[in-house]
Simulated assay, not measured.
Amino acid sequence: MKQGLIHVYCGDGKGKTTAAAGLALRAAGCGERVIFAQFMKGNESGELSAMERIQEIELLRNSRNYGFYKNMSDADKKEITREHNEILKEVMRKIESGGYGMVILDEITYPYELDLIDKSEVERLIKEKPPSLELVLTGREPDELFLEYADYITRMKCIRHPYEKGIPARRGVEF
């Protein structure tokens, strides 16, 4: 049986989701089944459109884009928490059913930090993941628990970004 490890892609730089998507693509190309669960985001992106076409990759994500946390109403926070917990339960069910080589929890640091997900279930997954499962966690500032259990930690650091010059996100590059 192969040994599965834990990856963390974090930091303020661009590329965390893209790196996780690249790893999903690599695993799928080697015949592994992948769960790509995305939290906080509900908008379209090029990576997700491409992954939808690959039968080894299953996408789980919010039903809509809720926007930034600071702009969410109390009703939005309640609804996104419900959706996040449903996604996490589905991830756990799929892991328990077997047959998956990789699980990616994209943007998981945000709902964890902001109490928009059942933290105890996230902790259980990190601490008790099946030994052969590759687990990937992304987001800006991971909780100390994520770092403690990680085998790989990659920090993306923003040195310069076009947004600073007023250039908005571009299709096919930033999303």
Score class of each variant (00 low, 15 high):
residue 113 E to Q: 15
residue 114 L to G: 06
residue 116 L to T: 09
residue 121 E to D: 15
residue 115 D to I: 13
residue 100 Y to A: 09
residue 100 Y to R: 08
residue 94 K to E: 09
residue 120 S to H: 14
residue 122 V to L: 03
residue 109 T to I: 09
residue 114 L to P: 13
residue 125 L to M: 11
residue 115 D to T: 14
residue 117 I to P: 01
residue 99 G to P: 10
residue 99 G to F: 07
residue 103 V to Y: 02
residue 104 I to H: 03
residue 99 G to E: 06
residue 106 D to G: 02
residue 106 D to R: 07
residue 119 K to V: 11
residue 112 Y to V: 03
residue 122 V to W: 06
residue 124 R to C: 13
residue 103 V to H: 09
residue 95 I to N: 04
residue 95 I to Q: 09
residue 125 L to P: 06
residue 110 Y to A: 15
residue 118 D to H: 09
residue 123 E to M: 13
residue 106 D to S: 03
residue 121 E to C: 12
residue 96 E to S: 14
residue 94 K to F: 07
residue 111 P to D: 10
residue 99 G to H: 00
residue 110 Y to M: 15
residue 95 I to E: 01
residue 122 V to F: 05
residue 115 D to Y: 13
residue 105 L to Y: 00
residue 121 E to R: 14
residue 101 G to F: 08
residue 97 S to T: 07
residue 101 G to T: 04
residue 102 M to K: 10
residue 106 D to Q: 01
residue 103 V to S: 02
residue 123 E to Q: 12
residue 102 M to N: 04
residue 110 Y to N: 15
residue 119 K to N: 10
residue 110 Y to F: 14
residue 109 T to G: 10
residue 94 K to P: 05
residue 116 L to S: 05
residue 125 L to A: 07
residue 107 E to C: 03
residue 98 G to V: 08
residue 95 I to K: 03
residue 109 T to N: 12
residue 106 D to I: 08
residue 96 E to V: 04
residue 120 S to R: 15
residue 112 Y to R: 07
residue 121 E to A: 15
residue 97 S to L: 10
residue 95 I to V: 14
residue 96 E to K: 05
residue 105 L to W: 03
residue 102 M to G: 01
residue 108 I to L: 11
residue 115 D to M: 00
residue 124 R to V: 12
residue 109 T to P: 06
